[in-house]
Design a protein around this nucleic acid. Structure first.
Lengths: 368, 368
DNA sequence: TCGGTAAGTGAATCTCGGG
DNA sequence: CCCCGAGATTCACTTACCG
């Protein structure tokens, strides 16, 4: 996929996102991923039971006069995004119940055609401290194309199926919040952006609905998660951001990202394997990385991990590809193999079966 | 909870739901649960408010016409529902991405205040046969009250927490589709209603946001799941249905439901609904004596009981006086404190929270 | 260095009745 | 209407600190 070379590829453009989009050529980008302000409308302070204060999102950029002001803002950026999208392009928006219904209705009014709504289920959401509602444990994403009759949009069905251990990817995704080392912090240890999204979320979005070399535009770039994952996956990004401090942090972050090698990224077909915890989830979460090499316990065979959660083992005729189970069987010349116990990785100089990661994920699933 | 006896309780009313609602008294029902027609794109099912049929056309102009007709229909039934709701009542709607964004936006425009959106995750969704989208594995429910300033809505927090293994109920609910013996079928074994909702879903909705004896109205009654669960749980239902065949099937279904016994229904009383016991009553009864000294659990602070049921804690400028709560907060320098659980006394050499005396008094009150 | 405990934190529309 | 004050309320995970 070859992008329009006149586009400001792999750059962050400072300024108002609508004005900036209006200066870009029409029908030029493959995907828009947008994480707009949610219009949370928070009241006063909220205290935890231990009397500590919740650091709510009270930034100026999330304050709107009323619903109609928010609608006008939404229609504005969606129209601009629609103009720059290729006809076979797609758009994702993420939001919460505060804003997502308005965004979804306006999308439809503008002619976008919803393909799926996708639920990001959080493994570790903030509880409801006063016990007056359900724990708000998810956010909603909308995936849409430019119109009902648009049939040629990108959807890497097989890659996502591979990522999900050879079962169709569902519309509900279980992923942790962005915390720990992935969370950008300043010199004093304070979070740089209040709503930084996890890379695993963008990983799945870009794997599903873009091709290598495609162009992804993010009109609310913030801490630059879209750019970081795009670079890692060999996609081009265009980041629009109003706040120079966010833009600077995002630029520094993206510069540190090592792009994966192309053969690790290309999605392939794979055969059936056991369901339950998908091996793709292990890769997505960064417990194992694309390009990392796995061995059997006695190091007789090896295979490399690819971004879609499949393995590739060297062989005379170009390489054996497939799930952890099918590749394990093929290298041994065996009829079957449990890849979870067969394949090992190296951690701290020790060989560990990859099943330990499945156990970790299972613990999370049980908890969630 | 005693309902308005002039209401047509535990009945199914045939006819247009908007007209029927408009004949019911204002501010009379506790909950509206609505499973409206999902959309136009599937064709056929949708009637305009004037009962004319919407033609299934698919060019752009007509698609917008469809959305606006759907919006008009939605505004119509939501306005009627709003009128009959008590001020402290609530409304639930269930939908999919075809319609839920429009419904949610209109809800907000009419002044409803969203408490949560809740995701019904299906354990056994229909797969996406053509492999062009994610498996559509969830539906969305919206729970809202009549307005932003409405604080006294029903939410049985403790009951839901119990249902969830003593953890706060989250906004994502994993429940199977309605299949097997629960699914209503005709003599030839064909399902009677295309979108019969599982009883487990309504069980959770009614457990969460209604009280025993309360009135639940369902404007799109269909196969009568709302009525069946309401009857089982000791709630009253009012079912509105246009189609006499659905109404007949629902009536027969509900007649077979055995109501649970009252003691099995009444949830554990929440702490908020327990009778208030002033600390002075503990002193009056001699359970704690004036002059006795109380400590916090780790014995960092102390305070002495006075005859009027206030405490006094030593401090540089003469002593902090006030209620058990205000003195507890003051000694810690905290904004608030629950004195009942903060302060302890010594009995048989053991530190006991003073809340045990309040529990004793409450037990006496309940017995007497 | 290691293990155990304590503290911190995340897109949050977060109390309620009486005077 | 507002103001006051009683008193109810948290899950999963990371980091810091201490012995």
């Amino acid at each position: 996929m070859v992008p329009d070379k006149t586009l400001p590829l792999d750059q962050i453009l400072l300024g108002d996102c609508i004005e900036t989009m209006n200066r870009l050529p029409a029908r030029s980008v493959d995907l828009v991923f947008a994480d707009p302000p949610y219009n949370l409308q928070l009241g006063g302070d909220l205290l935890r039971p231990n009397n500590s204060r919740v650091d709510g999102v009270d930034d100026e950029w999330d304050r709107f006069e009323d619903f109609s002001a928010y609608d006008e803002f939404t229609r504005g950026w969606l129209k601009a995004a629609r103009r720059i999208l290729k006809d076979d392009g797609a758009l994702w928006v993420i939001g919460s119940y505060h804003n997502i219904f308005r965004v979804g209705a306006i999308l439809q009014d503008l002619g976008f055609w919803i393909m799926n709504d996708v639920i990001w289920r959080k493994t570790n959401p903030m509880p409801n401290f006063r016990g007056r509602r359900f724990t708000n444990a998810h956010e909603t994403l909308i995936w849409c194309t430019k119109g009902k009759d648009q049939k040629s949009y990108s959807f890497n069905y097989d890659a996502l199926k591979s990522l999900n251990d050879d079962q169709q990817m569902r519309s509900d995704w279980l992923l942790p919040l962005c915390t720990g080392p992935e969370r950008l912090k300043d010199a004093e240890g304070r979070k740089i952006h209040p709503t930084q999204k996890p890379e695993a979320l963008l990983y799945r979005v870009l794997m599903a609905t873009t091709q290598p070399g495609g162009v992804v535009l993010d009109p609310f770039f913030g801490s630059g998660t879209t750019g970081a994952v795009a670079r890692a996956l060999g996609r081009h990004y265009i980041g629009l951001e109003r706040d120079p401090a966010y833009a600077a942090a995002a630029e520094a972050r993206i510069a540190k990202v090592a792009p994966m090698r192309e053969p690790d990224i290309v999605a392939i077909r794979s055969k059936r394997s056991e369901p339950r915890v998908p091996f793709g989830a292990i890769v997505e979460r960064g417990m194992l990385r694309p390009g990392e090499v796995l061995f059997d316990e006695r190091k007789r065979w090896s295979a490399k991990i690819r971004a879609d959660g499949t393995l590739i083992a060297p062989s005379r005729d170009g390489g054996i590809q497939g799930s952890i189970h099918s590749v394990g069987a093929a290298v041994q010349g065996a009829p079957a193999c449990n890849g979870w116990t067969f394949w090992h990785c190296t951690r701290d100089g020790m060989a560990l079966p990859i099943d330990i990661f499945r156990q970790q994920v299972r613990a999370e699933l049980a908890a969630g």
